[in-house]
Design a protein around this nucleic acid. Structure first.
Lengths: 245, 245
DNA sequence: CGTACGCTTGATAACCCTCAAATCTAGTGG
DNA sequence: CCACTAGATTTGAGGGTTATCAAGCGTACG
């Protein structure tokens, strides 16, 4: 448990953008309102006019949109430390739903406070822009995943991405909580729930992925990466873009 | 032909962000290098370190990435007036290929010049951020398209999006150039080229979409929208986000 | 103890893919 | 101008992957 609940989010920014001590302090001092979001309820609805930006401190949220004929597609998973609706700072009218997959804690930071911080510290604005670009890159990779990979690889790829996001990767016996239903995995991968079930079983049988009771286990990371055709470059872990502003 | 080749790109920014006369002037005065990109050759390669940002003045480019087993997914089409690699300003190392679908003209604007303009005029930076968010929204909609819609709807949806981007939509007899091969449509929709062919034929038979020799014709816009399950809200045409900075 | 929800299984069929070859088109060189 | 070639579109056949429908099972919770 962090003393400063914003720390993991600041670490995320620091991973790609060099921030001064003062800028760190400004971020830590941002006004915010703690809020618990119950499972299956939404932190932000499509069409809603956002006045705050969230930071997740606990739990798991998804970004999703519905087609006219009532099908649902999840377009991103957001873990602790991420800002799922940062984009509303530039475009307050939300273009998708943000729903909690389990009881989750978020911090709501007013747009005004962020705008003010950006105004006074351009590097903070730069960090946010970079974060947005990062999220955009991940979304593009999702298009590739859903468009090109067969079911098993598609699911494997998703688990690889989340494992890295959560910083849970080990050579052997990677293990992390992922409190989602198989139906949610189906909505994220563009597969049917039934087929997700069979594919997960098959991956389990191959001894590359376990997924039960909301906990994922990856006995052999390399094997899963191989099945997924996963190349983590798009996540840019540990490759900073520290530019002088 | 525009006297100032940057005009259509500036109009695009003005559609969502209020820019002063001076800011307009700064944008028009941006240093740039004209460049023609031949069909099938790339303006930017994956992994490359970008030092400029492109504005398309003529032609059509695609953003694409390849999976490890050699399959290709197109994740965006870029038409005249768009900045396909704006994100390299924040993250110079490109995460995808940018390839011309036909002989195209681009303007290369040095990163330094843009950084300088942003530094002096925050509203310009805001316009760029908003443009980035816009592109990101479109990409998310692609995930939905590829993940949830059946072949015909998927193709129809793609044509709806491009028609709007090109500002070509009419009630009847919408018509615009789209110099791409059916194989490219396949890579964009996650379908096989053969199946794209049959789907296009079927749409043609339904009299909702013609596509021959790189020219698209849409005899009945509403009918196509209906088949696509298209809701243009994500493109935010004519809905400005003019915020005071 | 009942109910709701998620997971699992089976059967059937739809959708889409792959392979293969034919046709058509546009561009090239003789 | 015509033969040749390469690329794009089209067609056919067959099979694989995935969807849908339906029902059974397990488990957590009131």
């Amino acid at each position: 448990m962090n003393i400063y609940p914003l720390t993991s989010f600041i670490n995320r920014l620091s991973a790609h953008t060099l921030l001064s001590d003062e800028e760190h302090a400004v971020l830590l001092g941002l006004p915010r309102r703690e809020e618990w979001v119950k499972a299956d309820s939404s932190a932000l609805k499509i069409g809603e006019l956002a006045k705050t930006v969230c930071v997740i401190t606990e739990g798991l949220l998804t970004r999703s949109t519905n087609t006219k004929d009532g099908r649902r597609q999840i377009t991103s998973f957001y873990v602790s430390g991420e800002m799922p609706d940062l984009h509303t700072l530039m475009r307050p009218r939300s273009s998708f739903d943000l729903v909690a997959q389990c009881e989750s804690q978020i911090l709501r930071i007013p747009h005004i406070a962020l705008r003010d911080a950006i105004h006074k510290h351009p590097a903070i604005g730069e960090a946010f822009s970079r974060e947005l670009v990062h999220q955009s890159d991940v979304t593009a990779e999702w298009v590739v995943n859903v468009g090109q990979r067969p079911a098993k690889a598609r699911i494997a790829h998703l688990f690889c991405e989340i494992a890295i996001k959560k910083g849970a990767v080990r050579e052997q016996d990677t293990r992390f909580l992922l409190p989602v239903t198989q139906a949610a995995l189906a909505d994220a991968t563009g597969l049917s729930a039934v087929h997700v079930n069979r594919s997960v079983q098959s991956l389990r049988h191959d001894k590359v992925l376990g997924f039960e009771h909301g906990e994922a286990t990856i006995p052999n990371w390399d094997a899963l990466v191989n099945i997924a055709g996963f190349d983590g470059a798009y996540l840019r872990v540990g490759e900073p873009d520290r530019l002088a502003s």
